[in-house]
Every structure is written in C-alpha cells, then in structure tokens.
Design a binder for these strands. Structure first.
Lengths: 150, 150
DNA sequence: GATAACTTGATAAAAAGAGTCAGGTTATAA
DNA sequence: TTATAACCTGACTCTTTTTATCAAGTTATC
C-alpha cells in the first residue's frame, strides 16, 4: 500500500508548523523549503488544509499559515481526509448497477469495517504526537531522525 | 474509499464458482454472464487468481476454472492481494529520497498499522462465508439479496 | 485435424495524481 | 494611494494506473 505523496507533504508541512517556536504565520516559501517541494505545488496542498479548517491563511505582507485547530487536536486521519475526501466515504464499485444501500450486504459491511479500522488507527495519533516523537524529517522516512532542537 | 471494480468482479466470480453444485470446470462465458462483465476483461482478472494459486485453469474442450484452494480457505484479503499486490506491501511515498527503513519512524509505523488493521478485517471472512450469507448478487450491493437456492 | 477453451502481448481510452504557471485578490506599510 | 508581499484560483500539461478490447497463440478433446 502506498499513501499519496500529497498526504505525506501535508503531514510534514503541519509538523514543521507545529515545531515553530512562535505563533507568527509561516510563509509557503519556508514550508516548501522544509519539506523539499515546490512552492506552487505545496501551496495547492495547503489550500486543502485551509478549506477543511485545519489551518488559516493570512494574506498580505507578513502573511502565511497558522493553525486554526491546535496541533494536538489534528489527527493524521484529519489530514488524510483533507487531502482525499474519498477515504472517509464508502462507495460501491460500480454505481451504474442498481444498488440499494439499505439492504444488508455482508461484503459491503466487511469493506466498510476494513475502512473504519484503518481510519481508527489514523485517528489515534495527532500532529503534535508526531512532532514530539522520533520521526522522519521530510517524508515518511529518511536517514536522519529528527530531534526538535537540532 | 472505493475498492476497485476488478477486485469486486474477482470476488463475485469466486462466489459464483463456490455456488456451483458440481465440481466441473466453469467456463469464462458463464462467469462473465453471472458477474455482468465482458469475457475478455474477466479472463484477465481470472488470470490473476490463477497466478496466485487460488484457482486452476483447465484448457481445451470442457475446460474452465476450478478451485485450487477450497473456498472456505480463501479470504477476501487473498483476493484483494491477488488483484493488487501493492496493498500487502508498504512503501514510503517518495523513494527518491534516502530512506533508511531500519530507523524508527512513528509516522511509518502508524501507516503500517493502519494497513495491517485493514487487512486483518479482510482476512476475517472467506469466499464461502460470503456465499453462505446474504450478499449482493453481482457487485458489492444490488437490489436483490441472494438466497442460495433461488 | 477441427474445435473449444484458456493465455498472452499489444494497444488504447479514461481517470487520477503530480506539478506548473499566469493572473487575481487581499493586506500591509510607506 | 501606491507598491509590494503574500496567498488564491483556474487552466493546463505530463505521467501513471485502471479499465478494457482484440488478435494471435497454446492446449486439450473429440
């Protein structure tokens, strides 16, 4: 299984924000540099986080991004869903066919349960948790484990 | 979340096989008709199931497909993995960057656990279980719930 | 040898993901 | 009120994956 690069960039941008010593807005240039992505691409990603209410954007001079929800309340599931609403929904595979969602279907229930168990794990950890624990600096894993004051 | 149509077709083809009264090989034409897919596309799907050893193909006249593993030992996870090996592996999102898999990474561990929990649910049910329970006739869900001797 | 099946490789359309860019909007500060 | 710094938006391209088809090949039976 492979979670998308966009999800990974979003998580690491939020970790970078959580590690800031001050509450001042952080610019896209600084974030992009931190997660090693282009400014234009990361801006697109940050927009998803703004729209789902995890962070706020501040325009104009001295603008940038700040948390709207405190980082200890933002779960990894929140970020994954912000980047791909589809993971939190459940759709049958072929909508063309008539499908009565009210009927019991062992198979559908099974896949919904599989989805729910996956999300439950992702809900069990927050951005703050990750920032406070050994984690990879920019993407899922990298040579250097990060220590906060390095 | 949406599991692929191919996975769904594979599962329902296997259910159709499990519901056969005899052990004779079942032809792709009959299976394709049962799951409402084209013969050529379903043949490609069945090939995945043959290659992963869930079923056997018999060529020539009176050929078709038969189980290699008994249906009560084939889990939904087996089918999902047969159709997409990737779900059973775990890859970091950006292999370009140096990544030392031996280092601890809270984030990587979290995503691996999420994947494992999803697979655990899919391993908890077999093709035979589905065939014996109320399920949708052709795809994840459909108007009619199936009863075995209808 | 004819026929009925599955198998394989080539191919292509469609969808999703990754990425860029120009122009637009908003806020600050001189 | 103008210049500038920042985020926002829509259009667009490129690549990969998924879905799908078809013709030719292989194998087994009669």
């Amino acid at each position: 299984m492979k979670f998308s690069q966009s999800i990974d960039l979003a998580i690491h941008a939020l970790i970078t924000m959580a590690e800031q010593p001050t509450d001042e807005p952080i610019m896209i240039r600084k974030l992009a540099n931190s997660v090693q992505a282009s400014e234009s691409y990361l801006a697109r990603i940050m927009l998803n986080l703004v729209k789902t209410g995890l962070i706020k954007s501040i325009r104009g001079k001295h603008g940038g991004f700040v948390f709207k929800k405190p980082p200890h309340t933002i779960t990894i599931a929140d970020v994954v869903i912000a980047m791909d609403q589809d993971v939190a929904e459940f759709n049958c595979s072929w909508e063309i066919r008539n499908c009565d969602q009210s009927k019991e279907c062992t198979l559908r229930n099974l896949f919904k349960e599989a989805q729910e168990q996956m999300l439950a794990v992702l809900r069990s950890m927050t951005i703050k948790d990750i920032a406070n624990s050994p984690h990879c600096k920019t993407l899922f894993c990298e040579e250097e484990t990060k220590t906060i004051n390095s």
